[in-house]
Amino acid sequence: MAIWVNEATRVVVQGITGKEGQFHTRACVEYGTNVVAGVTPGKGGQFMDEIPVFNTVAQAVSATGADTSLIFVPPPFAADAIMEAADSGVALIVCITEGIPVMDMLKVKAFLGGKSVRLLGPNCPGVITPGACKLGIMPGMIHKPGGPIGVVSRSGTLTYEVVDQLTKRGLGQTTCIGIGGDPINGTDFIDCLAAFEADPQTKGVVMVGEIGGSAEEEASAFIKAEMSKPVVGFIAGITAPPGRRMGHAGAIVTGSAGTAAGKIAALEAGGVHVCENLGGLGDLCATVFAGL
């Protein structure tokens, strides 16, 4: 089962002939992902390895039946790329690009309103259903296929750390999702939690948040009201000074809002098993998820 991506997912990579696009497309293909097309404007008719390249996403979709787009387009052109993908009729768009201006993303979100397409990211590592489909830049080998744990996170390498600890304790994953570190992004925690709750193969969830915004607080309310499966939560940034952007554009404490302490309190109130020290996350998961 897992959620959103699997063996049948047919992928078009936007920006496939760029350095990043080539490198990660090859890693995805090597993992077993079904990449059916690439798009680079002006390079239609060429091939990247064996993969046909098209000038537009619409052409790629109509020629290959791609249903998912993976975007490696530089920030100045990324908003355009997302809207092009949404217009082509794909069901899922994963945007890896870091550094897209907030104003561009506000317009993208308004453009997507009412469309049934799902956007993941931007500024995210992507999504992986271990053993079936890797759609992003995460190292495939740290994952363990077969579930029963779903992982959702705002961060990249921090997610790898969490997945690695799960795998080392024998806890496999159904699907691992990076929702991205930008203030304005597509899919949020609640979308992922709802999908994991509905997925019969997923028995428990690890949710990794960080300072800034109120997505974790909203997720906590959802977990309390709607979720029957156990959730382990972790929040990064207890030591982050207020008013400073901690790498991620969205990771900033403004006044009394967005603090780690506030988020941890909200998670606890939502019935989440909160891990306070990342070094002990694997142990906590082994305890909470025992017998699943």
Partner: peptide, 25 residues
Amino acid sequence: MVNGAGLAMATMDIIQQAGATPANF
């Protein structure tokens, strides 16, 4: 020194939990 913003923040937190204080991000 860490790769990735989220892991960097978590590493700072770990330093503090170990009884020291982070000198940087």
